[in-house]
Amino acid sequence: MTVRVPAPLRELTGGREQFQLEARTVDEVLEQIRRIEPLLAGRLFSDDGNVRGFINVFVDGTEIRHLESGRRGVRPGAVVTIVPSVAGG
């Protein structure tokens, strides 16, 4: 599945706009992000492993905090969207 890296966070991926990963659950998605893009992961997750309050991670349009533990399966080809807070106006 494809993870799109939003512009404000691309400094952390050496300019990469997107990357691929293989995962069957949300937890695996997060694990793969940590492995493939450790700097990006450092921005996304706080020390306790939770997504920080100024960033959101959506899988197929649903924020992962809203996915019940029993429903954390991820379909092949799911779209992972990272939404950072931006203030530009």
Partner: peptide, 10 residues
């Protein structure tokens, strides 16, 4: 200041 891209300095 106008901010975007919340990034702490490593």
């Amino acid at each position: 200041a106008p901010l975007a891209a919340p990034l702490e300095r490593p």
